[in-house]
């Protein structure tokens, strides 16, 4: 560089707004609900939000590399139903069923990824198809009423917690969430993660630079599937078995990611912001709940958020350009 590097916070573009919104909501919660006058209230919120945050992180990998994963909601349902049926209350089955569930999530992601990259079907269609297939399969298998039951040790991940020194009692879901988040951040800072974002920006450039674009995209879908499986394990323990447990979660995850300022179509956005988006969404729903707003409004609120967030991002481009001119960058405005 021929000009000195000025210090800038290492937040990806678009991260700051969602953190601000989240902070406002958390403060609002403190004023509204007595439960939030103590850390335990927030811990409960974090525990509730954990499955959605995991799904949002998975969705982030797919969106930032230029795709969509609409199949995660149905995948969550399928996983929970499968778990209940296979475990059927037996403690001894818990271990291998969990391994199987994670494997199934990876497999669904692998299929999504391979069909997208090898058969060149847009991921929106592939995962929409997968959503319907999984839905249908669950219905066929259960006839609408899932059978079997989860074992207590399976439900521990969604319900129980662990006593840690210094931190005190932490729900397992929060521990899992933090581990996944840290792993995701490290992954996105590494070469593979950065290349994944570049794929969402300009796939051709990455391929011509010697990158294995197809592999990276498949990896993104597999991570999304894996995290959906993990979310299902938490949700099964937390909410129990039903054929509706994952309903609408794919859109909720996409809303969270968009709320986090991640660009639809890929190429921009941070995984922390996507996770913060999920937390924000959950905090908002909790606040509305406390204010006595009907839960039926949730999907409408979600709809407004997704449109507003994308509109904000679109407006932001022009604003950013003006700011850059103010900063005196000699370059002409980029031609869009």
């Amino acid at each position: 560089m021929t000009t000195p590097t000025t210090w800038r916070p290492r937040l990806a573009d678009g991260t700051a707004p969602v953190l601000a919104v989240l902070a406002v909501l958390l403060v609002a919660l403190a004023f509204t609900g007595p439960a939030y006058s103590e850390p335990t209230g927030y811990l409960a919120l974090l525990k509730r939000a954990a499955p959605l945050v995991l799904l949002a992180i998975g969705q982030y990998f797919v969106i930032v590399s230029g795709g969509f994963d609409l199949s995660v909601g149905s995948l969550v349902t399928a996983e929970v139903v499968i778990a209940a049926r296979l475990i059927d209350g037996q403690e001894s089955a818990t271990g291998w069923v969990i391994v199987l569930l994670l494997g199934f999530g990876l497999l669904v992601g692998l299929v999504n990824g391979l069909v997208t990259t090898k058969l060149l079907v847009p991921s929106f269609i592939v995962t929409l198809g997968m959503l319907l297939i999984l839905d249908g399969a669950v219905f066929l298998w259960t006839g609408g009423a899932p059978r079997g039951a989860l074992s207590p040790s399976f439900r521990v991940f969604g319900r129980g917690g662990v006593d840690l020194p210094v931190l005190g009692h932490l729900p397992w879901s929060v521990v899992i969430l933090l581990v996944v988040l840290v792993a995701a951040v490290l992954f996105m800072r590494g070469g593979t993660g950065r290349t994944l974002v570049a794929v969402g920006d300009n796939e051709k450039a990455v391929r011509l630079a010697g990158g294995r674009v197809d592999r990276l995209k498949v990896l993104a879908f597999m991570l999304s599937g894996l995290l959906a499986a993990l979310a299902a394990i938490l949700l099964g323990g937390f909410a129990g078995v039903s054929a509706q447990v994952g309903q609408g979660l794919e859109f909720r995850a996409i809303t969270a990611v968009v709320l986090g300022g991640v660009l639809l179509g890929g190429g921009r956005g941070s995984v922390v912001a996507a996770a913060a988006g999920a937390l924000t969404l959950e905090a908002l729903f909790s606040l509305l709940n406390l204010l006595g707003v009907s839960g039926a409004l949730e999907s409408a609120v979600q709809g407004v958020i997704i449109i507003a967030a994308v509109a904000y991002a679109a407006l932001g481009v022009n604003t950013r350009l003006r700011l850059r001119r103010r900063a005196g960058t000699p370059e002409p405005a980029p031609r869009q």
Partner: peptide, 28 residues
Amino acid sequence: TEDRKGEGLALRQSIRDNALLVRRAALP
């Protein structure tokens, strides 16, 4: 490449990420 924007650069990524693109993508 002769097609800088289409084939050479990921335009929304930073200078640093672009400069490291080949190394990360082909020689991890």
